[in-house]
Write a protein that binds this DNA or RNA. Structure first.
Lengths: 265, 265
DNA sequence: AGTTCATCGACAGGAAAACGACAGCTCGCG
DNA sequence: CGCGAGCTGTCGTTTTCCTGTCGATGAACT
């Protein structure tokens, strides 16, 4: 039915017996402009699926009563072809799940990172939308990211990013030119329930900068101005952070967070 | 995407009384951009065939009621020349089937691997597409694979691959330059219902690398790097992973999976 | 100047991947 | 019908390198 790319909102059904988790996912999805409903049991899931007609389903496999596998079977038996993204416990039934991803489905291990889940949902939707091969490429200035091949390049230069770096950058690029707080980045990119409050984000940003701004000594702090609204101001200090590859793209907004964009202002 | 010459979408009819199996096949086919419909009984199959006019049919021989042989007869009697790929149980009527494949049809034993089935479908389609059957040759950099002759070569050198290695490589090449996860590879190349969670994939990749990257001492980790992007950084240091035949083509994307592609710059 | 916030080098624990070695199987050949 | 070769997959070890913590240095704001 509806497909990604369509004008209408994506309809998502989230099935998880842990309400907080289900809500978390639903909330993020709604934030992206999707319509989302949740179900906390297998039975409810089937009921919701029947009336809501989701375009995609997030299904926890460990459900009391009618478990995820059973729900999947019933869904398929009723002729529905909705793509499904499964959630499984770390060491749980991961093996059995593997066999289910052949279709267009996919799966994720709990605890997962929200951005990771959203990324998979988008991918699955894109693929199930038919001749599937429109690639999804994010771009900001001369920085591009191909989500299928995972190739990231600054201009011509191909960058080598670690998984975490890749995730953070993707989130920043996707939201560009919005400024994101460290908390937001932490919440989206790290697994939910990541206790470690630390400067991890700063760390990753630092490493990212070095790689994509080619910037050795970089440290050009410029974006800076105080309050969120970024505004214009900033630069000032001369060097626009050009390390070797052009202007700096990751800017620090002191007291707020980070943003990826061409300098502006 | 993958071309057989058809401009329009391939129309596939899948006949299997086990809905999950039929759906599995249909889903994968749709992924490839085909149009697919399923039928769960012989009667339904004939009905669907009449209205859908498939270009090719996947037909399970063990159907309750009107069985596969009967369905085939009726189809032929009605003048249809659609090529058919049969599915049979491991020890079942394999012999009798042999006699049916004359027309250019083919058959596969259950349980099968999805990629294997898709490969046969493509082959049969190609042959039935007219006398002028172009060969289907996959190529990535100087690595080529002829799906008809099963010849694989790196540059001039002919490689000797075992069945499993061949399948894995074909899947990787077909999807190149997309990064595939181990789960995807496992799901496509191994028979459905292969529970084994193990490092088989890593193993095969390792063996493939040794053969096609000519890599004796191998372990040239270079392409390998973090996520996705690999690449550039590497070169420099002399070894481009070139064992003897050029740059490494199978790259590890840590935390994600594997890709076949030229490092590109 | 003092205080707060950010950057980044260095290090260690640990997760993921590579790979050698071995055993069960299949299949072809004698 | 039995033997042997090659293919596969499991185990366990080794290697690689990703990640987050600490702490010192440096900027920016008040």
């Amino acid at each position: 039915m509806q497909h990604y790319g369509h004008v209408e909102k994506v309809r998502l059904l989230v099935v998880d017996d842990d309400p907080p988790i289900a809500d978390l996912v639903a909330t993020v999805a709604r934030y992206e402009g999707w319509e989302a409903v949740t179900a906390n049991s297998g039975e409810e899931a089937l009921r919701r699926a029947a009336e809501f007609h989701p375009d995609i389903v997030v299904l926890d496999l460990m459900l009391p009563g009618l478990d995820g596998f059973a729900v999947l079977d019933r869904l398929r038996l009723s002729g529905t072809m909705v793509p499904v993204v499964f959630l499984t416990a770390r060491d749980g039934v991961a093996d059995r799940v593997a066999g289910l991803t052949r279709g267009g489905d996919d799966y994720l291990v709990k605890p997962f990172a929200v951005e990771e889940l959203m990324a998979r949902l988008r991918t699955v939707l894109r693929r199930s939308a038919g001749p599937a091969f429109q690639r999804s490429v994010l771009a900001v200035a001369d920085l591009t990211m191909d989500e299928d091949t995972r190739e990231v390049r600054r201009g011509e230069r191909l960058l080598t990013l670690t998984p975490t770096e890749y995730e953070v950058l993707r989130y920043l690029m996707r939201k560009s030119p919005t400024v994101l707080t460290k908390a937001q980045i932490l919440d989206h990119v790290w697994e939910y329930g990541f206790g470690g409050r630390s400067n991890v984000v700063e760390l990753v940003i630092s490493r990212l900068r070095r790689k994509l701004d080619g910037d050795g000594d970089g440290t050009d702090r410029n974006g800076t101005d105080g309050n969120g609204t970024d505004g214009s101001g900033t630069d000032g200090s001369g060097g626009d952070g050009a390390g070797r590859d052009g202007p700096q793209l990751i800017h620090t907004v002191r007291g707020v967070g980070y943003v990826v964009r061409q300098v502006a202002g």
